[in-house]
Simulated assay, not measured.
Amino acid sequence: MSQSLMAKEALQAPEQIRRQLYENQNTVKDIVARVKMFAPKMVYLIGRGSSDHAGVYAKYLIETELGIPVCAAAPSVSTLFGKTLQLEHALVICISQSGKSPDILHQVKQAKQTGALCLALVNDESSPLAKLVDQVLPLKAGPEKAVAATKSFLCTLSAIASLVAQWADSKELTFGLQSLPAQLEEVVSQAPKLGFNDLKQVKHCVVLGRGFGYAIGRELALKLKEVCGIHAEAFSSAEFLHGPITLVANKLTLLNIEIEDETFEHHKKQIDEVVRRGGQVLTLNINKQNQSAENIYKRFIPLAIMLRFYLDIEGIAQQMGLNPDEPVGLNKVTQTL
């Protein structure tokens, strides 16, 4: 099999994150100084697709580290319903690879008009979005040509973590970021967690995580749809018990995102209940036999799981006879209203 753009770009993620953390040090300090002076009462996240999924990680990290409430935008409220939200005490974080989508730009313009402090996490530093906001935190992911986002998603998570680490003055996050690129490089050399035989007969599946596991679950489900043509939906494992668990009776395949953090024991009980009811569970976690992976900070385990997953499903897609670089009906930049 020839190596796809998707695989090549996913493999670049550790080095791009290393570059990002080094080059953005002063930028992050400047942004946090302005944010602290503004003293936001809430954080309002704007994004579509993978950027929206990265926002779920941001929500969990900001709320657990800073205690500031975070909510996600519904762009059509402003673009189609014509309503302007009152965001004068909000830090608006807009996440975008291209910085070009009309609905994203429209909402940022409205947010600025109501007095919000607007920050863009964007890969294209010359984009309309970068020129519109008050502050820019560059993703530094480098050019990403594959339709399926990989390194830009991981670089978004690391950028969010660097912002929160500085804002919360978190020694754990700061120290964890220092070793993250090297730990991700070791993930690349690990054995796959998913193989062709695991998914070759799967048409529908559910992705289950809790907390930071759920934060990446939506992105993981999206990639199963985009790259492998598998219908996948993500749930918090707690929410799954409130009704959807009845689907397990249909011999449903479930992907279990296993993260050893504060949610681990509760999530495990929920997964055990799924197994008890006959669910076919595939577990995604880090390789604990690897010393570096053993020491990865718990908040960055999601990045390690995602990187390994990207590489695994790229190979599976090719074995299925699919081209991971050309998902049917998709373009790299999607413009919506």
Results as ranks from 00 to 15, higher is better:
residue 6 M to G: 05
residue 9 E to Q: 10
residue 15 E to D: 15
residue 16 Q to L: 10
residue 16 Q to T: 07
residue 18 R to G: 12
residue 20 Q to D: 05
residue 20 Q to L: 13
residue 27 T to P: 00
residue 27 T to M: 03
residue 30 D to N: 15
residue 30 D to K: 12
residue 32 V to K: 01
residue 35 V to K: 05
residue 39 A to N: 15
residue 43 V to M: 10
residue 49 G to F: 00
residue 49 G to H: 01
residue 52 D to H: 10
residue 53 H to Y: 15
residue 55 G to M: 06
residue 59 K to N: 13
residue 63 E to I: 02
residue 64 T to R: 15
residue 64 T to A: 15
residue 66 L to M: 14
residue 66 L to E: 07
residue 68 I to S: 08
residue 68 I to K: 07
residue 70 V to Y: 01
residue 71 C to F: 10
residue 72 A to F: 15
residue 74 A to Q: 08
residue 76 S to E: 00
residue 76 S to P: 05
residue 76 S to Y: 03
residue 79 T to R: 05
residue 79 T to L: 04
residue 82 G to Q: 03
residue 88 E to Y: 15
residue 89 H to R: 13
residue 89 H to V: 04
residue 90 A to C: 09
residue 93 I to S: 13
residue 94 C to I: 15
residue 101 S to E: 09
residue 102 P to V: 00
residue 105 L to I: 10
residue 105 L to Y: 09
residue 109 K to F: 07
residue 112 K to M: 13
residue 114 T to Y: 12
residue 120 A to Y: 10
residue 123 N to M: 08
residue 123 N to I: 00
residue 127 S to V: 08
residue 128 P to Y: 12
residue 130 A to C: 04
residue 130 A to L: 02
residue 131 K to E: 10
residue 132 L to K: 00
residue 133 V to F: 13
residue 134 D to T: 15
residue 135 Q to S: 09
residue 139 L to R: 00
residue 141 A to G: 06
residue 143 P to H: 05
residue 143 P to N: 07
residue 151 K to P: 11
residue 152 S to K: 08
residue 154 L to A: 09
residue 154 L to Q: 11
residue 156 T to F: 05
residue 157 L to S: 02
residue 157 L to V: 03
residue 160 I to E: 05
residue 165 A to Q: 08
residue 167 W to K: 14
residue 167 W to A: 13
residue 172 E to M: 10
residue 182 A to V: 05
residue 184 L to F: 13
residue 188 V to D: 02
residue 188 V to N: 02
residue 191 A to F: 02
residue 192 P to R: 09
residue 198 D to Y: 07
residue 202 V to K: 02
residue 204 H to Y: 09
residue 204 H to G: 06
residue 211 G to D: 09
residue 212 F to Q: 09
residue 227 V to P: 00
residue 229 G to P: 03
residue 231 H to I: 04
residue 231 H to W: 09
residue 231 H to E: 08
residue 239 E to N: 15
residue 239 E to K: 14
residue 253 T to G: 00
residue 253 T to P: 01
residue 257 I to H: 12
residue 257 I to W: 13
residue 258 E to V: 04
residue 259 I to V: 14
residue 261 D to I: 13
residue 261 D to V: 10
residue 261 D to E: 11
residue 266 H to K: 14
residue 267 H to V: 06
residue 272 D to F: 07
residue 274 V to C: 12
residue 288 K to N: 11
residue 293 A to K: 06
residue 294 E to Y: 11
residue 298 K to S: 13
residue 302 P to N: 08
residue 304 A to R: 04
residue 308 R to E: 06
residue 310 Y to W: 06
residue 312 D to W: 11
residue 316 I to H: 04
residue 317 A to K: 04
residue 319 Q to A: 13
residue 321 G to R: 08
residue 326 E to W: 04
residue 326 E to Y: 09
residue 326 E to P: 01
residue 330 L to H: 01
